[in-house]
């Protein structure tokens, strides 16, 4: 996979996320691999209005891989859900921006996540509720690849297929690296697309760092009528930070050296 170079907007969103760099430890890898997925969702796909975050008819987006939350904070702040300056309060004692998303603190956070394997069931419930209440809402659930080690994900997948919920879209940020090391060593997922097809999902794949390719796939949902959709977004863990790209040790980092901090800020063009 050869993704196009990161454009200004992608670099801007990374800068916003990294504005927390001096505040607390960061899940660099997961945050950086997510940026384009969330960018395209919030820029082009989700039917949401930052001024009406509780509109019952809105689309829902659940960040099930909650440890990538800085990517979500970056796009939500950029969209006007809250001031971008607040990102620097990340993980402070009384901050509204904890290290995993918490519903009720900030507008736009649909569910509290952090323990993995919860988001797809919650999204399934929301998608069913939309059907029962005859609302047009779609539900997007963004998961990590390692997250799909959790059995609850597959319980939810069976249910979603049983109900034929084509208003439910699961997206896997497939960066192929989990905390300890490569996914294929920790708990191999392949054949990933075939597994999801076997569980009743209609599957599409995209370059998770190419906004045009993501838009092509996410703009043509559901992948198949009458079936839930699964989008495999092929990504690179730590994308955009030379120090972190593809390095398991950068899954979560705190206590960066001054040189590391400076290098990251410089690479993104300042803060």
């Amino acid at each position: 996979m050869t993704s196009p170079p990161l454009d200004d907007r992608s670099r801007h969103l990374r800068r916003l996320a990294i504005s927390a760099i001096k505040s607390a430890g960061i899940h660099f890898g997961a945050t950086m691999s997510l940026i384009e997925i969330l960018r395209v969702l919030y820029d082009d796909i989700l039917r949401i209005d930052p001024k009406r975050p509780d509109d019952p008819d809105r689309d829902r987006c659940i960040l099930s891989k909650g440890h990538g939350v800085l990517a979500l904070y970056a796009i939500l702040a950029d969209k006007g859900f809250f001031p971008t300056s607040e990102i620097a309060t990340f993980c402070a004692v009384d901050s509204r921006l904890p290290g995993h998303p918490e519903h009720g603190l900030l507008p736009g956070i649909e569910a509290s996540t952090g323990a993995l394997g919860h988001g797809l069931s919650i999204g399934l419930g929301m998608a069913l509720a939309a059907r029962i209440q005859k609302r047009p809402s779609r539900v997007f659930v963004v998961m990590g690849d390692g997250e799909t080690n959790e059995g609850s994900v597959w319980e939810a997948a069976m249910s979603a297929a049983k109900h034929g919920l084509d208003n439910l879209v699961a997206i896997i940020d497939y960066n192929k690296l989990q905390s300890y090391g490569p996914v294929e060593q920790v708990q191999p997922l392949e054949p990933l697309a075939d597994k999801w097809r076997a569980f009743g999902f209609a599957v599409a794949q995209a370059d998770g760092h190419d906004p045009a390719d993501l838009k092509r796939v996410l703009g043509a949902l559901p992948v198949a009528a009458g079936q839930p959709s699964l989008v495999i977004a092929h990504t690179v863990k730590g994308k955009g930070l030379s120090l972190a790209e593809g390095v398991a040790d950068w899954h979560h980092k705190r206590k960066l050296t001054e040189a590391e901090t400076a290098a990251i800020i410089a690479e993104l063009g300042g803060m």
Binding site: E110, L124, M126, L128, A129, A156
Partner: peptide, 27 residues
């Protein structure tokens, strides 16, 4: 539409019920 049998998958049952309750239902 409000009678749901979901199988032997309690973790999913609970998460799903939570999602429904987030949108105004009482499972």
């Amino acid at each position: 539409d409000r009678f749901i049998i979901e199988g032997i998958a309690e973790a999913n049952l609970i998460g799903m019920a939570a999602g429904m309750a987030m949108d105004g239902l009482m499972p």
